[in-house]
């Protein structure tokens, strides 16, 4: 029998396996938001008028800008993968920097948007909100919860991308081994897809 000295270090690199793992994780995230979308659908069905009225109060402009921001950032991180595959480290870095900048811009917009609502006395459990109709209470509850959870995912996404970015600087992620970058990209696109649905459901159904 062949005598191989093996250590129990897991040096095997399985590109397809890692990617499959990331996809499976993305499925769980989709269903996590899925539960909220079911909740949204049921309450919208039960309170169509109130959801209609409340949605008109949200600022379509800010929502649209944030949509475009996320779409561009999704495109740039996808481009960074192409750049890395072509071993163009400089372009990879630039694209990732743009992605992170856009993500932070999104959060800043979100901050001002939420700030405006809160300054009008609309936040979960506020006296002003409690005086509104039940449908509106639910709408704003869902609005804060879902966009809040989404914002949390943006923060996690930026952290993820930042980690990958530092590994690219150290050449640990490179043209041969780039699955980590691909996975951070997949995660980021997931965040994008969730927003693609959040945007019309909260801002456009008027």
């Amino acid at each position: 029998m062949e005598k191989v000295t093996t250590t129990h270090e897991h040096d095997h690199y399985d590109h397809e396996g890692s990617k499959l793992g990331m996809w499976l994780f993305i499925f769980t995230e989709l269903l996590l938001f899925g539960g909220l979308f079911i909740t949204y659908a049921v309450y919208k069905y039960l309170n169509p008028e109130a959801f209609h009225m409340a949605a008109e109060e949200l600022n379509v402009g800010v929502g649209a800008i944030n949509t475009v921001i996320l779409l561009i950032s999704s495109a740039t991180i996808a481009m960074s993968i192409t750049a890395l595959q072509q071993n163009n480290i400089r372009l990879t870095k630039v694209m990732l920097e743009i992605t992170m900048m856009l993500a932070i811009t999104f959060l800043i917009n979100k901050y001002f948007e939420w700030g405006a609502k809160i300054s009008h006395g609309i936040y979960p459990g506020s006296d002003h909100l409690m005086e509104m109709s039940r449908g509106e209470i639910l709408f704003y509850g869902l609005y804060f919860f879902m966009t809040g959870l989404h914002a949390l995912h943006i923060i996690v996404g930026v952290a993820f991308i930042a980690v990958v970015y530092s590994k690219i600087l150290k050449r640990k992620v490179n043209a041969e081994r780039y699955v980590l970058l691909e996975n951070s990209g997949l995660y980021w696109h997931l965040v994008d897809i969730v927003w693609i649905f959040l945007f019309p459901l909260f801002y456009l159904i008027t």
Binding site: L32, G35, L36, Y43, P124, L138, G141, F144
Partner: peptide, 28 residues
Amino acid sequence: PIVGITLLMVVAERTMNIGFFDPALGGD
């Protein structure tokens, strides 16, 4: 994940009075 988010909703309900499942606030 579905129960995960449901439990988070109950947490939000308890801490922030959001009203997802509270009939008094329109929830079911």
